[in-house]
């Protein structure tokens, strides 16, 4: 329990750092995160691009166009005229819209992250509005250790160059891998196992081997 508290404190401390650093790190070069007194400053570095968690999603209305394409609507299309039912803890409590949404995210409710006053934006724990593009900061409020690891390049998938002096790098944001409504990584079927030790293959290899020798 004490350890958990420690992490929460770490999370809060890192949050205050992240507020500044994260917003800068997204879409800008790694240069910006390095101490200014380093001689490396002179080295030209390629950008480290983080995939944006935004823009705000459009939801399917259930209608389709004449050509069969789903009709989507911005959040505010409905939420401007409808009063938000707060606090809603799961999709099961709803009578219309967002039905069947799989929501498994701790003790959170809809309004923990979504801003009931402005549905085109997200809301941080302190009540501040924040754009969808800044969703990682929202996640970092509770997931401090993960945000810290992410900041230091040891959490989350990436592609490109390890050496950013030679080429750019692309990183996932939280939501490319974690569904914000059900963030646990899903179970999946693995890629097939090696077949090198299977007897059938081994015997086939042996026959190939013999053929080669008889040639």
């Amino acid at each position: 329990m004490r350890r958990k508290t420690a992490f929460q404190i770490t999370g809060i401390v890192s949050l205050s750092l992240l507020t500044g650093v994260l917003s800068q790190a997204i879409g800008t070069s790694q240069q910006s995160t390095e101490p200014a007194n380093k001689p490396k400053e002179a080295i030209q570095r390629f950008p480290v691009h983080t995939r944006s968690p935004g823009p705000s999603p459009a939801i399917e209305t259930g209608f389709t166009t004449g050509s069969g394409e789903p009709v989507t609507a911005d959040c505010s299309t409905c939420h401007a005229t409808r009063t938000n039912a707060v606090p809603v803890r799961s999709a099961a409590e709803l009578e219309s819209f967002h039905l069947g949404l799989n929501f498994e995210h701790g003790q959170l409710v809809c309004a923990s992250c979504h801003d009931p006053g402005n549905n085109e934006e997200l809301r941080l724990a302190d009540g501040t509005h924040t754009p969808w593009a800044n969703a990682m900061q929202l996640c970092a409020q509770c997931h401090g250790p993960q945000a810290r690891d992410y900041e230091n390049g040891s959490h989350g998938g990436m592609t490109g160059y390890w050496d950013t002096t030679l080429g750019p790098r692309t990183r996932n944001s939280c939501v490319q891998c974690h569904d914000p409504h059900s963030p646990a990584f899903p179970q999946m079927y693995p890629a097939p196992p090696p077949r090198d030790r299977h007897i059938s293959i081994r015997s086939q290899n042996a026959s190939d081997h013999n053929e080669r020798h008889s040639e």
Binding site: S154, G157, M158, T159, W162, D163, C177, F185
Partner: peptide, 20 residues
Amino acid sequence: KGKLPACLEACPTGARVFGN
């Protein structure tokens, strides 16, 4: 050439860390 190894790029969870 400065690129990340193929196994790291394929990792969907970011479990792999590579560098100098």
